[in-house]
């Protein structure tokens, strides 16, 4: 097992290197450069300034030379300055953006888990009941709805139509003090984006949990458990659920990175200053350092979640042994 973990961890390094090379190369191929952004707002900007700044930033060198330089600093933890904000890119991303994303995605993840597991189990136990059909229809709706449109409709229903019953966007109302009012305010701002963001995973996981449970309840060992006179509740929760939940671990592990980077649509609709939007904006205005540090963080997260999902699976299921 330990050898397996070490091997997987060692695999992470070349994979990350390769991904960073590809992303850097693609970014370098994008039209325009960061100096264009400077020139745009500055009428006194001469061609000489342009050349000087290009040299200063090292943009006159070919992209692989720049990549090599960037890599040399990145492995020492220096991801360069953000050209939009005039401060270290890593500091900006990890202090101003990551916590917001953790809040939104974390709550959405929890909500999806807490609702999908019991719903999926109930739906499977009462297969072909009215409840099961309702859940199935909702699952179809959840995987089919465009998240950003759902967000816009939620804003219309709960913020516009009701005259500001819930806030239409952003993270907080400025000027609120005191622990409890701030908590309530944050919660009110979270409700709609969490509802929109969690809808897809809620539906996917409920559906998955249902089918996984249906798979398990057919197995002989449950008949045995019932035959020896165990209470139904115990059969379901101690015997069936424990096995049925295993595949969900993998699925959830693989979804976490999506929640981080794929939230750009939700963040745009709700004006939520998270990572997805930060990456999007950084790419648009050629703030490569911010884009690279965020993208590398998310790639690392994807690889880590893949590994953790595999390990958690092995931990939960003694039949699986990696070697």
């Amino acid at each position: 097992m330990l050898a397996y973990i070490v091997r997987r961890l060692l695999q992470v390094i070349p994979t990350l290197l390769f991904i960073s090379l590809v992303l850097y190369g693609l970014l370098a191929l994008k039209p325009g450069d960061p100096i264009d952004e400077l020139r745009r707002g500055n009428p006194g900007f001469t061609q000489a300034d342009y050349e000087r700044l290009r040299e200063f930033y090292g943009l006159d060198k070919p992209w692989y030379v720049r990549y090599w330089r960037w890599l040399g600093r990145a492995v020492q933890g220096d991801f360069g300055p953000s050209r939009q904000f005039g401060r270290p890119a890593a500091q900006y991303v990890f202090e101003n953006r990551l916590p917001n994303t953790l809040l939104l995605s974390g709550v959405a993840l929890l909500v999806a888990l807490v609702i999908s597991i019991p719903t999926g189990v109930l739906s499977a136990l009462k297969q072909h009941s009215a409840l099961d059909y309702t859940v199935t229809v909702f699952n179809f709706l959840g995987v089919s709805v465009p998240i950003f449109w759902l967000g816009i409709m939620l804003i219309y229903l709960f913020a516009v139509r009701t005259g500001g019953f819930l806030p239409a966007g952003s993270m907080m109302t400025p000027g609120i003090t005191g622990a409890w009012p701030v908590f309530v305010d944050r919660l009110r701002h979270l409700l709609l984006p969490v509802a929109a963001l969690s809808s897809l995973h809620l539906a996917q996981w409920t559906r998955f949990m249902r089918s996984s449970m249906l798979e398990v309840v057919r197995l002989d060992y449950l008949t045995t458990a019932r035959a020896k006179g165990l209470r139904e509740g115990k059969v379901v929760y101690r015997h069936a659920l424990r096995n049925a939940i295993l595949p969900l671990i993998t699925l959830v592990g693989l979804s976490i990175p999506q929640l981080f980077s794929g939230a750009v649509l939700t963040e745009t609709v709700f004006n939520w200053p998270g990572m997805g939007r930060a990456i999007f904006d950084a790419i648009l205005v050629n703030d490569f350092n911010v884009a690279m540090v965020s993208l590398m963080f998310i790639s690392l997260l994807i690889l880590a979640c893949n590994l953790l999902a595999d390990l958690a699976y092995a931990l939960a299921d003694p039949r699986i042994r990696y070697d």
């Binding site: 994979t15 991904i19 590809v22 992303l23 693609l26 970014l27 191929l29 994008k30 039209p31 990175p257 999506q258 980077s261 794929g262 750009v264 997805g276 990456i279 999007f280 790419i283 648009l284 884009a291 993208l295 998310i298 790639s299 994807i302 690889l303 893949n306």
Partner: peptide, 15 residues
């Protein structure tokens, strides 16, 4: 599958 999808999409469209 390990490369973040949406940013890659952005870069490709721009490219």
């Amino acid at each position: 599958l390990s490369i973040p999808q949406l940013p890659l999409l952005l870069i490709l469209v721009g490219l």
